[in-house]
Design a protein around this nucleic acid. Structure first.
Lengths: 355, 355
DNA sequence: TGACTGCTTGCAAGCGCTTGCAATATCCTG
DNA sequence: CAGGATATTGCAAGCGCTTGCAAGCAGTCA
């Protein structure tokens, strides 16, 4: 009976310790080393590609690893290696169904390459400096900015902080610096113009997203260029506050009230769907009275309710290239700044009349 | 001239060191301490809530911090604190537009509480053990499983590994263990039955998602219960391989060929939209010939092209509760296992006839 | 004045891992 | 089998941070 000699704090500590060791504590390299009868270094080296370990010790270590359920602590490792394998994905497009596809592909692509996506949501007025703060605190290896409308400043700040960053989908207004991969929106606009002309449309209206989004601007420029010197004219352009259905719907109603056009080129499929719904409501027949052309080719564009003719941007190619490029930047840490643009192609469906 | 005494390796090392210090190296607590004329501990304590620092030293530290652009390294910190503030979000629903909203809310909610969402994409045949591996290697504080169809095994494995985990949207088939928050799918099904009866429908077909998804099962059970003992009968049930448009479309066509029903309750809005498109194609008038009722109330359900009457699940409530609960679990580390279900409500639109 | 209290502060150990270095083991070749 | 080349191994230092502890330092009260 010497139990009564233990005071309360000591007891509490003992209990905690016990709980920690019996229930909680995850095995460390030290535990594995002890069980395997080797040094901690040996354990570390078995889990480091290209390190020098004999098959004998490797086997012993692996056996101990299995029996303890050990997993190397990636965070502790990063302290020495200066690599976390964490990649930040920054976006503010959480309302566009296309980005479901974008996130899906990005995360899958990163996972396949052994990287972990850390998400930063910049929609709904979240501060960009808070996002930057987290990137730095968590030592991400690189940053992917997936958005057409994120402020140039953010990308610049990342770069200044020495973070490799590539921007996917859309480019900053002053295309000065940075690595950008996206669709060739100008060429897409060009293509849109050609398609519309071929189908015999002669007065095209443009229904775009935010006036200052480069995606919108470039697509319009392409369209303009493609129509200059032809018998088809650009006759009006309207802009929405964002790429949303409601904007497409109200803007299209406004256009239809004005009249004087036989087709509308929308800067985004969601806008186009809004526009189609507006046509339906007003009783304008598509594609007889008015042709509607979208942009992106998101999954829903193919659904029969819309059956939208659209300009497809090669989302998968863009994403794979963006990841490739970012990992390259991280590896070499050389600035290979530049634009990488993928060609768009037209997807024929039911909202333009046949050629 | 003693340069020639430096051998090549030494030179290389010197160069590297130089590059590292001049270009790359981010300031550490040590740098701040030196500049501020205090100890490293003082720096640490300045950034630790509740630690004992005089306002004098705190000011000095903060000044040095600003002038160097210092950010505490969250990963190094986690080594001692055993907290990373990383929360894993696991999902395999990257094809359902509803989950755009889900991700948006989850990430915002976590960010607001100072946590970082680490994403694991389990769609497209990614191995669940690889996901678990990453959770453990990166020492996430907790796990949110956002899916209705993820294998129970995964949740169990997390729990066994000592990871606090809550499952949002849908529950494992054997509801034995774990923390689950979601919509009350049974009540939703009940409600669906009532709504359909009130509207005078007498023969209801059920068009569900995967046969073994509990969301599907529960909704059907609710529907059945609600119809028993009434003059409305359940007359047929079909299941899709997933909650996708194509499944809804083909299943509905099959149902329409068979005939013998005047309304269909779909286990998901996307299925319902597929069903509506099938009706349109076949020429079945909605809601005259056949009523269509969805589930979820995703944004697109309100778009005029579908204008879908549906059962709404309170996504935002579920997500806030899930986060709340998870953070609680992490804090207390007590198992407060249980189901937390939110009531669904009906959203009246145009695909059911009026009462 | 001196003992006592309550804050601050720096020291040093340590979180779980990597890695340069030197010692040791292993393998070849003649 | 000697002798050199190559491979493997453990030691110890260190990554950037936190934290228990004891020393230092006012301030308080008798």
């Amino acid at each position: 009976m010497q139990n009564h000699r233990l005071d309360v704090p000591t007891l509490v500590r003992a209990l905690k310790k016990n709980r920690a060791s019996s229930i909680e504590r995850r095995p460390t390299a030290k535990d594995v080393a002890k069980l395997a009868g080797v040094s901690i270094s040996a354990v570390s080296r078995t889990f480091t590609a290209g390190a020098s370990v004999s098959t004998g010790t490797r086997e012993k270590v692996l056996a101990a690893t299995r029996s303890l359920g050990y997993r190397p602590n990636a965070l502790a490792r990063s302290l020495m290696t200066k690599r976390t394998e964490l990649i930040a994905i920054i976006s503010n497009n959480f309302d566009n169904p296309l980005f479901m596809e974008v996130f899906n592909l990005f995360t899958q692509c990163l996972q396949q390459r052994g990287r972990r996506p850390l998400l930063a949501n910049l929609s709904g007025g979240a501060r960009t400096d808070a996002a930057l703060d987290m990137l730095l605190k968590y030592s991400v290896d690189g940053v992917i900015v997936a958005s057409s409308t994120l402020p140039l400043r953010f990308v610049e700040e990342c770069a200044r902080a020495g973070l490799p960053v590539v921007q996917a989908f859309g480019r900053p207004k002053s295309a000065s610096s940075g690595n950008i991969v996206g669709a060739d929106n100008f060429q897409g606009g060009l293509l849109a113009g050609e398609v519309l002309r071929q189908r015999g449309y002669r007065s095209v209206a443009f229904l775009g997203g935010p006036r200052d989004a480069t995606s919108t601007v470039d697509r319009l420029q392409g369209l303009k260029r493609s129509l200059t010197g032809t018998d088809t004219e650009l006759c009006g352009q309207v802009y929405g506050h964002s790429y949303c259905h409601e904007a497409g719907f109200t803007l299209m109603k406004r256009l239809l009230q004005g009249g004087g056009f036989d087709a509308v080129f929308c800067g985004d499929d969601v806008l186009a769907m809004g526009a189609l719904d507006a046509c339906r409501e007003v009783g304008a027949r598509v594609p007889l009275d008015v042709g509607v052309l979208g942009f992106n080719d998101m999954a829903m564009a193919a659904w029969p309710a819309y059956n939208l003719t659209t300009i497809r941007q090669p989302v998968a190619d863009i994403i794979m290239m963006a990841v490739e490029l970012l990992l390259g930047l991280i590896e070499e840490s050389e600035e290979i700044a530049g634009l990488r643009l993928f060609k768009c192609r037209a997807v024929e469906r039911g909202t333009l009349r046949r050629a």
